[in-house]
Amino acid sequence: MLRKTTNLLLTTLLAIATINSIEIPKTQLTSSNLLNFQSEAQARSSGGRSRGGSFSRSSKSSSKSSSSSSSTSPKKTSRVRVYSDNNPTYYHSRSRTGSGTPMGATGTTIFLGILFFGVSGIIIFLILKSVSNASNNKSTTESSNRELDNDIFTISQLQVALLASAKDVQLELTELSLRANTSTEEGLRELLQESILVLLRHSEYWSHGLGSSEKIKLDQAEAKFESLSLEQRSKLSQETLRNVGGNIQEKTVLAPEDESAMYIVVTLLVGTAHDRPLFKDIQTTEALETALKTLAAMPPDYLLKLELLWSPQAENDSLTYDEFITEYTQMVQLV
């Protein structure tokens, strides 16, 4: 009886050990598959990011504004005086006309009068034109100073989807972000202009676009900008290249080429000192091109904050059609 009980116990223990030995490899295989899937998803959703600037008013901007105002203050206009010698009249005691006016004096007087009034008219016209130009320049400068000094900003967002065959875009934006000094005004402006040039040079690959521009008060500007930034960054599994305030971080991701790859998406978030929207909704290629050129041509003092995002960042990586329509549902096909 004791032997039977012992044999039964050994059989039970052996069965439990066998079951455990079978289940453990299954658990390890599942974890491995999950890691591989996450790695592939991260590689497919790699993203690049460069940003810098602030909505805070710096003393440098104030000094620029004041110096600009003083340099454009109206100057004293020098008065021009025109002197005209009186035409001498000669009287001859023996040969006078019946009216008492010497021969030829009347024509000379009329000619000099016309010449005098003609020159005076030209001088008056030039003075009035100079005053008008000075007034217009002063008005433009005052309007510019008001925009730079008030508490209203404009936040603009432009998104461009390009076909996957535009792989040079990823490489050029990566190189640009690696060398850009986003901690300075000049570096930030260069980043904006050069990234726009990259897009304009590859306009034949544009497929979809999205644009929004709205004015906003100072106390809401920072929150609005960060909200738009987080919305776009949340679409990335990881940022494989980051340049924030001149601090560069880079991760290496092996992204195998995918035959189903379709799109590359570039996003520009721009905070400026304008007190009005810079463009309307983007529906056409021409509208997108105009909006990009408007951002690139703005005065240096107006650019306050900038963030450039592009996905995927890896050179041999791009979004599939399903990923694109899932993450970028608001983008409109350009016509």
Rank of each mutant, 00 (worst) to 15 (best):
A291F: 10
A105F: 10
L192N: 11
A314N: 02
V266C: 15
E231L: 14
I122G: 00
K26W: 05
S234Y: 14
N181C: 04
E226K: 15
T184H: 06
Y91S: 03
S58G: 05
S311P: 02
I325S: 13
S311T: 08
M298F: 10
T240A: 13
R276Q: 14
K280E: 08
L303Y: 11
L292A: 11
S93M: 15
P277T: 11
E194K: 13
L334C: 03
K60D: 02
N33L: 12
L308S: 00
K293T: 01
T182R: 09
Q333A: 12
S120H: 06
E226C: 06
L192S: 11
R57W: 08
L269P: 01
E239Y: 14
T101V: 00
I282Y: 03
Q42E: 14
A134V: 12
G187L: 04
V131W: 12
S227P: 10
I123M: 00
S227M: 11
N36G: 05
I123H: 00
T72Y: 06
I22K: 06
D149R: 13
Q249R: 10
Q157Y: 09
Q42S: 09
S69L: 09
T174W: 00
G98D: 14
K305R: 02
L191M: 03
T290C: 00
R51D: 00
V169D: 02
A291I: 13
S260V: 12
P88Y: 07
Y205M: 09
T184V: 01
E323R: 07
S234G: 13
S68I: 03
G52H: 06
L319N: 12
P256C: 07
D281E: 05
K217S: 06
L173I: 02
P74Y: 03
L188V: 03
F117G: 02
D258E: 07
K217T: 02
Q249A: 10
